[in-house]
């Protein structure tokens, strides 16, 4: 595979069977988005956010990009901004992991921190304020930009259909909602019988960071109509499955992957025997080593100890 630069290396990720974790009579496959150039599914989104803005004349050569992100989107944007010549500012909660800060800094991004106590909504708020105050910057805004879902509609889902045309269900985590919305719409266009499930992580208090429910936020990108159900997964279940994935299937993934796999296993019982289910693994575990999620020891005790930083 010969490519001219890193932006061409996005996508075309492996779809790997999990024979040991699949319930008897069902086949679960995991789409390994950690195989993207900067190690996450967000490379697809970053590429679409930038290239759609270029196509529509919203982004001028050398213009600064500003985006609220707690990690993966920022890292994907930072690498692409480097080769495409855009300076980048990432607005992120101050309690995000050291690995993410180092990666962003190495890719030349400028970091602005929002208070940890305001959670991920705080970085959305601060980024909107900064963008409104500076007409020179372009904010792609992954939470509200249709290019986010379009990336999955045009790339993620067609890859799954090509590899596994008889897929019966698709599971992905809910962050911005771009993956389930974009991939879900394309999969249902291919076969309206395909079920779409969202795994909703039960975050720690630091992610919620709310003083009242009115401060809650539903990303504009998320279209609930495409979902057949949304299933909540707590940190312990997600972490336990993530560790089993390494132990039994030899795959080292981030904890969101475990959450989606918990849902994939759960929904098999709702499908005809012999069905194939695709779960999306948004990233590998590398960036979360410092959280202690993979440390030896009792998984219950670890889940308890790190619940404040696990999803931050």
């Amino acid at each position: 595979m010969l490519l001219e630069d890193i932006s061409q290396a996005v996508g075309n990720t492996p779809l790997v069977g999990l024979p040991r974790l699949s319930p008897p009579g069902y086949r679960i496959y995991l789409k390994l988005e950690g195989e993207n150039p900067t190690g996450s599914v967000k490379d697809r989104v970053a590429k679409y956010l930038i290239e759609e803005a270029e196509r529509h004349g919203q982004l001028q050569p050398g213009q600064r990009i500003l985006e609220p992100t707690s990690g993966n989107t920022g890292i994907g944007l930072a690498a692409l901004c480097r080769v495409k010549g855009y300076p980048l500012t990432c607005v992120m909660p101050e309690n995000t992991s050291e690995e993410r800060r180092q990666l962003l800094t190495m890719f030349g991004a400028d970091l602005v921190y929002s208070p940890a106590s305001e959670g991920s909504n705080g970085s959305v708020r601060l980024a909107r304020e900064l963008a409104a105050a500076d007409p020179e910057v372009y904010m792609p805004f992954q939470y509200g930009n249709p290019a986010n879902a379009l990336a999955h509609y045009e790339t993620t889902a067609p890859e799954i259909i090509a590899d596994l045309p008889d897929v019966a269900a698709f599971v992905a985590g809910l962050g911005t909602g771009g993956t389930v919305t974009g991939a879900g719409k394309r999969l249902k266009r291919w076969n309206p019988e395909i079920k779409i499930f969202a795994a909703e992580p039960e975050y720690g208090d630091l992610v919620y960071g709310l003083r009242n429910l009115d401060e809650g936020y539903v990303p504009e990108v998320l279209d609930l109509d495409v979902l057949d159900s949304r299933i909540k997964v707590n940190s312990l279940k997600a972490l336990t499955m993530t560790r089993r994935l390494a132990d039994e299937e030899g795959i080292f993934a981030g904890v969101s992957t475990g959450a989606s796999l918990v849902v994939a296993v759960r929904v098999c019982a709702r499908l005809p025997e012999g069905s194939s289910v695709v779960a999306l693994s948004p990233d590998g575990g590398w960036k979360y080593l410092s959280t202690g999620a993979y440390a030896p020891g009792d998984v219950e005790e670890i889940a308890q100890r790190i619940s404040g930083t696990l999803w931050a």
């Binding site: 990690g71 909504n121 959305v124 962050g175 909602g177 936020y217 999803w311």
Partner: peptide, 12 residues
């Protein structure tokens, strides 16, 4: 029954 606030995603 769990009541949970809607928030922007944790790792986005």
């Amino acid at each position: 029954i769990s009541i949970m606030p809607a928030v922007a995603g944790g790792m986005a």
